[in-house]
Write a protein that binds this DNA or RNA. Sequence first.
DNA 1: CGTAATATTGACTCACTTCAATCAACGTGG
DNA 2: CCACGTTGATTGAAGTGAGTCAATATTACG
Lengths: 247, 247
Amino acid sequence: MSNSYPVLERMVQKLSTRARLDTDDRQAILALPFVERSYHATTYVVREGDAPRRYCDFISEGFAFRQKLTANGGRQIVSVHLAGDFIDLQHLFLNIADHSVQALTELKVVGVERKALQRIALDRPAIGSALWIDALVDSSIYREWVMNIGRRDARARIAHLLCEVSVRMRAADLISEEKFELPLTQEQLADAVGLTPVHVNRTLKSLVDDGVVYRDKRYISFTDWGAIVGIAGFNPLYLHLDQTRGA
Amino acid sequence: MSNSYPVLERMVQKLSTRARLDTDDRQAILALPFVERSYHATTYVVREGDAPRRYCDFISEGFAFRQKLTANGGRQIVSVHLAGDFIDLQHLFLNIADHSVQALTELKVVGVERKALQRIALDRPAIGSALWIDALVDSSIYREWVMNIGRRDARARIAHLLCEVSVRMRAADLISEEKFELPLTQEQLADAVGLTPVHVNRTLKSLVDDGVVYRDKRYISFTDWGAIVGIAGFNPLYLHLDQTRGA
DNA sequence: CGTAATATTGACTCACTTCAATCAACGTGG
DNA sequence: CCACGTTGATTGAAGTGAGTCAATATTACG
């Protein structure tokens, strides 16, 4: 366990986008005991049924996703996470994991001691509200996913996921150009939107054929942002990207 | 604005199931400024796009639900809430509502001043963790709904919703006998599980015909709990019903 | 370079939707 | 107390979006 700055800097940045932090708040975060860790793609970070781990992970590099399994073996990916996301806030105050978290790509995380994070969340109001907001935004995203899967057809569903990922990546400052790498295989994409891989393939193709999506390997770009937004029925409100002014 | 005990008593009880509260915590809750309010069925409590309201509602009687609308008019019900649930915790720290909340039946709520609730959530660790847990359980339920809609067929989906509602009602001590009233019309049920009303009707009928569900008007009972649990693939873990021991 | 994982495509099937009636329940006014 | 209107439940027939099965191409990678 070390205590050097740079890795926690990013957490400070992230939380600053959620609530106004003063110098003491920043210091408190930078003083958190932490470990750095890496996971290879497909490695489990959390397993459903687990008791809480000692550390609460924050992604510093790479992608991860949450998943749940149906009684008869079906898999549902319930969220995708990128650099700057807390993986484990969902379990910060719960005593058993109700879902699994897996590395999607090579993944680097900063593991903060859970007890210390709990303490800081409860003792420092500004940090507390930043963490609250972060968790509530996650909730909001789940709600959008419920609607996405429950009430949109395949085309809109896939388009919506593409919109969400691109907007979140841009907001997290992970995209420089217009294109971005979608780190999901078509099978994973299918499990995220509640379709089969075959149908995802065809639907994706139709988006490409219609010229609204350009695809090169896993790299995606949009020829016309207004067009996919229209197809997806995408409204970024639910991402609550401008919460800085607080509540 | 009054300050009599009985209505907030229930909130104390609810939060006590989430974390251990001491006498001061209880007093702090009972001292919260609040108003009592009623809504007729179908009335909006919160509208998507709204700024936060002054009061944060806690259901003392009746049912409510959250919903979102697709760009082309589709409706998705994303959760159902019963007596003892906070309606608005989801917006406690966010500055715009990303979904609507509507009364499902005649509804009585206790509206607690939002600022006061924020303060108590951030200042009193025990209450803070109780509220955290409550919000995190909501998240967990959303995740289960994503899976329910994304990866289960109509029969299992509907069975799962029935299981969830009955278990939650029992946990909230709202059921005395074996039967319970499902406050949803078939159309609402359809919007909750991502199906059409027609198909819900047929599927429900098949469950009745198979003898696993008994139905009289809106009253539902199960002839064999093990059987619907099997059909639904229902595992109550995600409801985190025994969080009392804290984290 | 070989081999496994992923992507693609075709042909066929089916769970769920759509459209369209009909029926039942319930509150309301005369 | 009953006709009537409105909302919710039920049923049938036909259509379709997405699933299934299965083969082949492509890519990633040790």
